[in-house]
């Protein structure tokens, strides 16, 4: 434990209303699975010292189908998602993504809302939410608003979430067409992705990539090229202009560019 801060406060509300009131009155960092948070605390990169434990909030848990949408509580764990019949029926690639996050110990605790709020460009479920045109329901003590997932991120680890707001649910509108998902990592399990792609094959194909830009990225121009009848090689050319991968400890820009093109080719040939 390398965090130098000795005064840490820790609130454990029982209801969503209580949690939102606490958030309104003082700056607190919400924690649920804590699977990313504690890594930051251990490495000394997390300066926060006042936390709001939202794991007890029943209002944030559960999966339902409402009209044409699959609605997932922000506090729902990867384990629940990957075994959910509703998820497997409507958004099977979300179940695939959840099953590739960490090991079972992580899946039992990590939550979908946490993956979204943590705002890592490498989050495994995020390209799925991008191609789903998911809608995030945000609540504060005073208000509720719906924010499209694809306008939630404003930059690297930056979001439009206000300090007094919680993500309460994630809604995925149903979609026709074949869904496709690939995570590329150092090994099959327990590795942060070097690259992750989610796609839906419809008349207007939807394609999103993780780990190729400061935020999860929807490839609108590549989609348009494929929808307009471009060859796959031309579409890969467009893709290369949309992504801005970097060299880091997990991979290199050159590798990510090559693999991104290969993934698009595989998806289109599938």
């Amino acid at each position: 434990m390398k965090s130098a801060l000795s005064q840490l406060s820790f609130a454990r509300p029982r209801t969503l209303e209580e949690a939102l009131t606490l958030l309104r009155d003082e700056p607190l960092v919400p924690i649920a699975g804590a699977t990313d948070l504690y890594v930051g605390l251990n490495f000394g990169t997390l300066k926060a010292q006042r936390f709001l434990d939202i794991t007890r909030l029943e209002e944030l848990r559960g999966i339902s189908v409402t009209g044409d949408r699959l609605v997932i509580g922000a506090g729902t764990t990867y384990t629940t998602i990957m075994h959910s019949a509703s998820v497997r029926a409507h958004w099977p690639i979300l179940a695939d993504a959840a099953s590739q996050v960490g090991g079972v110990q992580i899946q039992n605790r990590g939550t979908l809302g946490g993956n979204v709020a943590n705002a890592s460009p490498a989050g495994d479920t995020l390209p799925v939410l991008a191609v789903a045109d998911a809608i995030l329901q945000l609540r504060s003590a005073q208000s509720q608003r719906a924010v499209p997932f694809n306008s939630f991120y404003t930059g690297y680890r930056q979001t439009v979430l206000r300090p007094d707001e919680l993500i309460v649910s994630i809604e995925l509108p149903m979609v026709e067409g074949k869904q496709w998902f690939r995570k590329v990592g150092t090994r099959a399990a327990q590795a942060i992705s070097k690259l992750v792609m989610a796609a839906v094959r419809t008349e207007a194909p939807r394609i999103a990539l993780g780990s190729v830009a400061p935020t999860p990225l929807r490839l609108r121009r590549t989609e348009a090229a494929l929808a307009g009848g471009s060859s796959i090689e031309d579409a890969i050319g467009v893709l290369q202009t949309e992504i801005t991968p970097i060299d880091d400890l997990r991979s290199s820009e050159a590798y990510r560019r090559a693999v991104a093109g290969n993934l698009l080719r595989r998806f289109w040939a599938s």
Binding site: T35, Y38, T55, T79
Partner: peptide, 19 residues
């Protein structure tokens, strides 16, 4: 560091004891 919490396995290094 794997332990069980309410029958589910978790990494105890990533859990605050207070939770």
């Amino acid at each position: 560091c794997t332990v069980h919490v309410n029958g589910q396995r978790v990494n105890s290094c990533l859990r605050l004891a207070l939770m």
